[in-house]
Design a binder for these strands. Structure first.
Lengths: 213, 213
DNA sequence: GCGAACTTGACACTTGGTGACACTAGGGGC
DNA sequence: GCCCCTAGTGTCACCAAGTGTCAAGTTCGC
């Protein structure tokens, strides 16, 4: 899309990447922040993209150069966690049980949320409370699930990447994730998400281990 | 907000209900059929609502009196299964284990799909292959999940309907459902969906029974 | 300073979706 | 027979989400 610097990872480099990149992130951040504020104030559906853009001091067209859809401004924030989740799973030692590895993967996400609890809580509640946002979020999750399943298939050295078991296990893990988010936002962040995750995984673990067999 | 296009209760009454109702179903069926045909031919995004309406011999406005959105024409077909799923769960004898009851509930859906395999397979593949459709479908599923969780909470005589366990169990059941649909459509309907469901539940059952405790 | 590459805004256009209003068909009640 | 009521429909106008295009402006490399 942009320049092709040949090397792989433009993100992972130092904060002082290109000036252009920093600018891009700045604008993007400004956009998300104003959008989020407006959404929380007036509700997702009551805010138009024009309003967001105007409030951020730019044109509608520019908004859509940064986000593929109105929903994306909100969902993106959580969506990035998905990539981290797969990476975390891949990084777990291979001798670890499926259940434990998945638990760590999910927990890394949950902890990331709990890290900026103030912002994350707003976002999560907005998503869970707005059908169209929830839909987009679930769509992303479906991609994560495929990713996780593929990673699990590798981990377990299964012949087919589309087998029943890895998909099931990935699905279970994401179900845990979703339920934990639900309870966390229902309880106004009072419940400790890490503890919730642990409890949920305790219940689900037997099924996950069955997958490993 | 004026008319209530979607949620009439056509199924529960006699087949020979009102003439008006039968007419409604006729038009609705005509609309879905032509829409489905066009979608399969040209892809969901390449077909406009105007085209569908024209092909079915009516106006765009009328289309939206029958379906809340373009996606609904496709999703509705599967969405009705959700209601049946909760009903099926509610009808299971209370002494039955959570796992068995849920398995029967899911199976009733799966069997309903396998029943009209020709149509269902088209629909399922369309949904799983089109992101926006998949998103809407998952949104519906999220509602089912809440319903199932509520039903489970009643079944298990839990104090809070928002507890961790019933939500988890409902999520697991729907994960099974989704994965079975995936494998079924991947395999061109060759795999027996009932058998798939049974296998999946066998793996998941330990977790579900942990819920019952 | 100059040109290339990238970013932005303005404008027009398509499409999903809704509201308002007028028209028709059928079903009683008289 | 007639009148009125209701549900369904078409037409038109309208809003908002996206997208393509082009003409600027900005930054970077040289």
């Amino acid at each position: 899309m942009t320049t092709r610097p040949v090397t792989t990872r433009p993100e992972s480099t130092r904060p002082e990447s290109t000036l252009a990149e920093r600018k891009r992130r700045l604008v993007s951040g400004e956009l998300t922040e104003t959008a989020l504020q407006l959404f929380v104030q007036q509700g997702f559906d009551a805010v138009t993209v024009d309003e967001i853009a105007a409030a951020a001091g730019m044109s509608k067209r520019t908004f859509f150069r940064y986000f593929a859809s109105k929903e994306d401004v909100v969902v993106q924030f959580l969506a990035d966690l998905g990539a981290g989740m797969r990476a975390e799973l891949a990084a777990r030692p291979p001798e670890e049980s499926t259940a434990t590895a998945l638990q760590h993967a999910v927990r890394s996400c949950v902890d990331a949320c709990a890290g900026h609890a103030d912002k994350a809580l707003r976002v999560v509640r907005l998503i869970l409370g707005t059908p169209s946002l929830h839909a987009r979020f679930l769509e992303r999750q479906a991609q994560w699930r495929d990713d996780l399943a593929a990673e699990l298939a590798i981990r377990l050295a299964l012949p087919s990447p589309t087998a029943l078991h890895p998909r099931l296990a990935a699905g279970l893990a994401l179900t845990v994730f979703e339920v934990v988010l639900q309870l966390w936002s229902d309880g106004d962040g009072a419940e400790d998400p890490s503890a919730l995750t642990a409890r949920a995984f305790a219940a689900v673990a037997p099924a996950l281990d069955a997958v490993g067999r």
